[in-house]
Simulated scan of single mutants.
Amino acid sequence: MSSIETTSAAPIERPGLARRMAAFMYEGVLLFGVVFVAGYFFSAMTQQRHAMQGQHALQAFLFAVLGIYFAWFWSRGGQTVAMKAWHIRVVDRQGLALSQARALARYVLSYLWFVPALLSAWAAGLHSTGAIMGALLAGIAAYALLALLLPQKQFLHDVLCGTQLITQLPVKRERKHALKNAR
């Protein structure tokens, strides 16, 4: 499965911003489980006794685990679980599957969703959780709206690493179709 599965004359359909954001939110819910299991594994392996003990090592470990998660799914089929649920697939500019290197580059560049807002909160001296979360949510909204100004309404990290999100509807299986017609 190295290229986009489309009918011969069908143009590439791109998902709208609302659907991409819904997939983004669903991905966050699913990642809660991944982060929970990885954090538990890390604390068991390092015999962590306190939440602040090894905090930076845990953050680096979770960054690596999430990188493996996304690079694995994006380079093997182009869809995470949330992307499958919302019929979204990531491909390169030519419509081909991502290499692991491009998938990793997309993962690293996807932190553009968060880093500018967090740096702004740090520069403004924000310390309360509410203020930091507010800055983070405002940054995420600004980043999402930036897509409306970019070519083909892509996210900035997709433009920078040469990828694009497309609509990937499930392929109908002939067997199910044949069973329906037999009745």
Rank of each mutant, 00 (worst) to 15 (best):
H50F: 14
M52I: 13
Q53E: 15
Q53V: 11
G54L: 15
G54P: 06
Q55A: 13
H56Q: 12
A57Q: 14
A57P: 01
L58E: 10
Q59P: 01
Q59G: 07
F61W: 09
L62Q: 12
F63A: 08
A64G: 06
A64E: 05
L66N: 01
G67R: 02
I68P: 01
Y69E: 03
W72V: 06
W72Y: 12
F73P: 00
F73E: 01
F73W: 08
S75K: 05
S75G: 07
R76N: 13
R76G: 01
G77S: 01
G77C: 00
G78P: 05
G78T: 02
G78H: 01
G78S: 08
T80I: 00
V81D: 02
V81R: 00
A82S: 14
A85Y: 05
A85S: 13
A85N: 03
W86M: 00
H87A: 07
I88G: 01
V91I: 14
V91Y: 12
D92R: 09
D92M: 11
R93Y: 08
Q94C: 04
Q94H: 15
G95L: 13
L96I: 04
L96P: 00
L96F: 09
A97K: 07
A97L: 09
L98H: 11
L98D: 10
S99T: 15
S99N: 11
Q100E: 09
Q100K: 14
A101I: 13
A101R: 11
L104D: 00
L104Q: 06
A105H: 06
R106Y: 07
R106N: 04
Y107F: 05
L109T: 07
S110V: 05
S110R: 04
Y111M: 14
Y111E: 15
L112I: 05
L112P: 01
W113T: 07
W113H: 11
W113S: 09
V115E: 00
V115I: 15
V115M: 06
P116Q: 07
P116S: 03
A117H: 00
L118V: 06
L119S: 10
S120P: 02
A121P: 02
A121S: 13
A123P: 02
A123L: 13
A123E: 00
A123I: 03
A123H: 12
L126H: 15
L126E: 13
H127L: 11
H127K: 11
H127S: 13
S128I: 11
S128C: 14
S128N: 14
T129S: 13
T129E: 12
T129G: 09
T129I: 12
G130V: 15
A131D: 12
I132G: 10
M133K: 11
M133C: 10
M133F: 10
M133T: 15
G134C: 08
G134E: 09
A135D: 00
A135C: 14
A135V: 02
L136A: 07
L137A: 14
L137E: 09
L137N: 09
A138E: 02
A141H: 04
A141C: 08
A142F: 09
A142G: 05
Y143D: 06
A144P: 05
A144W: 09
L145S: 05
L145D: 06
L145G: 03
L148E: 09
L148V: 06
L150C: 11
P151M: 10
